[in-house]
Nucleic acid binder design. Structure first.
Lengths: 233, 233
DNA sequence: CGGGAGCTTGAGGAGGATCAAATCATGTGG
DNA sequence: CCACATGATTTGATCCTCCTCAAGCTCCCG
């Protein structure tokens, strides 16, 4: 149980018009006029690692756009087992279920220091038609990610899953990628904390990845792809 | 490789207005006037077990509503491994990705004899605003199912996964449920065909389920729930 | 009746879970 | 600034589940 502080700081208004990731977020195809209309109540939320954005079952009052950091989406089984069913990073939308349901379906917790943009449900409701296409695209992203999670991170031996995780964490061109706690790696891949740790340690020994700082890795992409596909060396 | 015939028969027009599952499908909240406007090109497709509705990568020209039967959604890994990432049954919408993307993302194959309703993309495009809420709800269903797949069918021991599958196949009140081939059970749960077979056989021996006809089972719900939660007896 | 596909079962081994301990980070107070 | 406490990570040893390879079985269909 990470048990971090359950909410980050909320500071002032967000400047959507200057947002660096504007083209990737919900309001991508709104014009300037629309922007001034909605500028009002959108604000930023800063989350420390372990900080909770919202809990499963809570009334869904807002959507969130991820600006920086990585946020995990957790769900729980009847026996209390924890499972991470998805990750959200830059440009992803969280709490999409709020547009059609009353409550959140996951618990959203930051893995790295994160900054997200809070968009009250009322804003969405107020301008539905213009946003519909964009919201649909976000649903699509979300479904694709979930299926990729089953396919890539939930299939094969632990070594393959870890390799695929390293490949998913950042695009191949990116030199480094940030990892997170072994317990979370386990919950994401469906293996135990020990297996996650052992496998990552083995990767380091074999030079498949190198830890340049705490949980910051460089990767041998080609070699990881070979492992991911099941080729053993 | 099941390699069934790759398409069922297509016969005539569909009578949406008399459809038994009308309240569960896409056009749930359209009025009579709307119905007559769209009555045109919607038609039924009958699929035999193993029949393919569409292939991953194909241009997405239509959505499909499932009227009867169960349809599997398959995806493939780089090494060729097959994985079932979801099941669709009565009322579910298939090929939703077609509303925002060019091609299908899964291969959709019938597990039982199935009857589906083909809705050309042009119809959807033509009446977007009225349908938006309903489409959104279908996206939501789809995402929920995918997460349930990770959580319930992809976590824990083989015995737990099979128990959860039996519980998911039909609501608890339903006396019987239909299963499908062991190879597909394996691909859905992320275990081998042999493990699927062995586990189901063991369930039969222990009276947790009983096979009243080929792949038709009655279930001891309470006992299955105990197994699903990890209690061993 | 014979052939084939899918299902069941067996034996053996490997991978991962489990239990337990040692080592390494991180932040705290002296 | 250092010693210490705390939690995360790594590692070890053992056991059990599940995979693998292989054979027998059942059911259906020609």
């Amino acid at each position: 149980m990470t048990d971090g502080m359950n909410q980050g700081t909320t500071r002032g208004q967000s400047a959507c018009e200057q947002c660096r990731i504007q083209d990737r977020v919900l309001f991508a195809d709104l014009d300037a006029g629309d922007f001034s209309a909605l500028a009002g109540p959108i604000d930023d939320v800063e989350l420390p690692p372990g900080g909770t954005l919202y809990h499963a079952g809570q009334p869904a009052t807002a959507l969130y756009t991820v600006r920086t950091g990585v946020i995990k989406l957790e769900q729980y089984l009847a026996d209390g087992t924890r499972r991470i069913v998805g990750l959200a990073s830059q440009g992803d939308l969280l709490g999409l279920e709020g547009t059609v349901a009353e409550t959140y379906e996951h618990t959203a917790i930051a893995l790295h220091p994160a900054s997200v943009c809070r968009i009250p449900k009322t804003i969405i409701d107020g301008m539905e038609p213009k946003l519909n296409r964009q919201i649909m695209r976000k649903w699509h992203d979300s479904a694709r990610k979930a299926h990729a999670c089953i396919r890539d991170l939930g299939t094969g031996h632990a070594r393959q899953r870890v390799a695929r995780l390293f490949l998913v964490l950042a695009p191949p061109s990116t030199p480094r990628c940030r990892l997170f706690g072994r317990e979370d790696v386990g919950a994401l891949l469906g293996v135990t904390t020990e297996t996650a740790s052992r496998t990552i340690a083995e990767f380091k020994r074999h030079g498949l990845v190198a830890e340049v700082a705490t949980n910051v890795f460089t990767r041998d992409i080609a070699a990881l792809e070979r492992i991911a596909a099941g080729d053993e060396g």
